[in-house]
Amino acid sequence: MSDLVEVKNLVRDFDVSAPWLNRVLERKPKAILQAVSNVSFNIARNSVYALVGESGSGKSTIGKIIVGLLPPTAGTIKIDGIDPAHEPDKAKIAAMQVGIQMIFQDPYASLNPRWKVGDIIAEPVTARGGKADGLAQKLLEQVGLSGADVNKYPHEFSGGQRQRICIARALAAEPKLIVCDEPTSALDVSVQAQVLNLMSDLREEFGLTYLFISHDLTIVQHMADTVGVLYLGRLIEEAPREALFADPKHPYTKMLLEAAPKLDGFGREVEPPKGEIPDPIHPPTGCAYHPRCPIAVDRCTKERPEMEQKGKGRVACFLAV
């Protein structure tokens, strides 16, 4: 069987120019922000693919494109072998889209405060005109809440419980793929563990596939099977979890792993990384990381490295071995 998700040469541009009139008056050029730049990767069935990267690296944008909330500027996405942009059979696209769900970062904003929890959970079914009797109760129990909670409103729940409700809503669609955009970054550590455990359990029970978006390397290390590292909209390294954490190839990945605070790093003196993420509207030429890279050579400033198989993963760096 082919991979569940195939992303090929994905590009997404945002027009961030000033309003037309201001632009004309101030003679400014159009400003295009390339949030996702030529990204290709596959997600195997029943696996967890993690996208990591710092803020603005394009993680959420990729997630939204995959679930269909944003159209891509260029490139193709195939889910279950269906490319929604080129598939003539509308019914097939609709059936495919039912199977993709998303869990968002902010558990407070992802539930409509005026809706009862039962209606929220049943929405994937009712929005498409289906009947959902008793479904919400069943799902609430499945995510560790009480079936009697269907008549409550979201404000009666804590952050972790809300995230469970979001998970229940996603499950109502009987999904194949769930895109999780930083699902625990608004939660406390002790609650985060509950949610991560629940997600692992459900994955086994329902054979789910996750695209797991996070900036927290410790969570990624716990959850992921494969990890893709993004920098400024570019995928710069991809490898199975063990390989990536044991032997990162790209200097940026190395820096990220090094800079992340360690629980056992008592009094650790790290050489602080150089520089900051450049302006995404005017990214550096060649390899986007070259201005901060400790090993950059002349070629890095001129030519953009392609992803190449090196060791167990793929890396976009001329100097990786």
Partner: peptide, 9 residues
Amino acid sequence: DVSVQAQII
């Protein structure tokens, strides 16, 4: 971000 956090710390 992590890299900036490391700098500030």
